[in-house]
């Protein structure tokens, strides 16, 4: 990422945001933004639609939650462990999934994710339907108390920046060039001598790891790891966030996640709370029919048309 004025302004905005807005809401946005950005690495830059990405979010969450409750480890190690667990699961699932293309890839990822859903439903350490409640946030590096929301916010913000930077770097790396080539014309990439499945697999593992990191962080924020995060609804939600914001754009998933989380927060408080799924469905349909490039994608088009 080039250090532009725009990026500095965004980071500055992120630093002052909790003074104006409710930190827990902001942390939720950041967690989902990271999750959607990780997902977008696969969908937007390799052209792979994973329909089971919730399993990595949830795995990160459960592992971090369990370790925080049952061992005395510090939160940064808890998050690293959750991220590593998601990466390992991603390595296994990715190996199986990248052999298939298109709708079959989506189906394989969905099936594998459902498999883990039932494991987490039955396994004793996840708390089944209740989930893991009251996960302690702990003390960062052993001395910064994260039960304070402001401390927690800046920790989450740092994690988000690190994850977001890595995604950005991956997209703009020699590896990212090959990924884009595969997305554009897979047969041609093969005929240039690239073992495309190996590249897809590495991208899958990076994406799974960062989705896990988002889940681990989210578990600390809400002090909860539950089945919601591994449910296929969540896999669908991240597709919606990414499409709404603009797949294949760097900031699209962030904008999409912020929009969806805001709408959910707004609706769940009021009378329309019961209709939340219908409203989400309508947004999805409008998005697909009217502005396929998503919010950021459409804005980029307008800029391109008028300023270049």
């Amino acid at each position: 990422m080039k250090i532009s004025k725009f990026n500095i302004a965004l980071v500055g905005l992120g630093l002052v945001a909790p003074l104006v807005l409710y930190p827990v809401f902001l942390m939720k946005v950041l967690c989902f933004a990271l999750f959607a950005s990780a997902f977008n690495l696969l969908l937007g830059f390799v052209g792979l639609l994973s329909f089971g990405h919730a399993v990595f979010l949830g795995t990160g969450g459960y592992i971090t939650g369990y370790l925080m409750m049952n061992t005395g480890i510090t939160p940064e190690l808890g998050i690293l462990a959750g991220t590593a667990a998601a990466a390992i699961l991603g390595a296994v699932y990715g190996k199986l999934a990248v052999k298939r293309e298109g709708i079959y890839f989506a189906m394989v990822t969905l099936a594998l994710a459902q498999l883990m859903f039932f494991v987490y439903l039955q396994a004793p350490f996840t708390g089944g339907e209740d989930g893991l409640q009251g996960v302690p946030r702990g003390e960062l590096f052993g001395f910064i108390d994260l039960s304070d929301n402001m401390n927690m916010y800046y920790f989450v913000f740092a994690i988000f920046l690190a994850g977001f930077w890595l995604i950005n770097r991956t997209v703009h790396s020699p590896f990212g060039q090959v990924l884009k080539a595969i997305r554009e014309n897979e047969a041609r990439a093969t005929s240039l001598g690239y073992n495309v499945n190996d590249y897809k697999w590495v991208a899958f593992v990076i994406s799974a790891a960062l989705a896990g990191m988002a889940g681990s962080t989210k578990t600390l924020v809400f002090q909860l790891a539950s089945l919601t995060d591994v449910h296929w609804h969540m896999s669908g939600e991240v597709v919606l966030m990414t499409l709404l914001g603009g797949m294949g754009t760097i900031f699209g998933p962030f904008v999409g996640a912020a929009t969806i989380v805001s709408i959910q927060n707004f609706l769940s408080g009021g009378e329309l709370g019961n209709y939340i799924h219908i409203i989400m469905g309508i947004i999805f349909i409008v998005c697909v029919l009217a502005f396929r490039s998503g919010i950021v994608g459409e804005i980029q088009k307008v800029i391109k048309r008028n300023f270049s």
């Binding site: 890595l166 770097r169 991956t170 703009h172 790396s173 020699p174 590896f175 990212g176 060039q177 090959v178 080539a181 990439a189 240039l192 001598g193 690239y194 190996d198 590249y199 590495v202 990076i206």
Partner: peptide
């Protein structure tokens, strides 16, 4: 460049700038 790149041996380097 994508074709030239393969022989460079950095095609898996996702942490380096393009």
């Amino acid at each position: 460049r994508v074709a030239l790149q393969r022989k460079e041996g950095n095609s898996f380097h996702f942490w380096r700038h393009e």
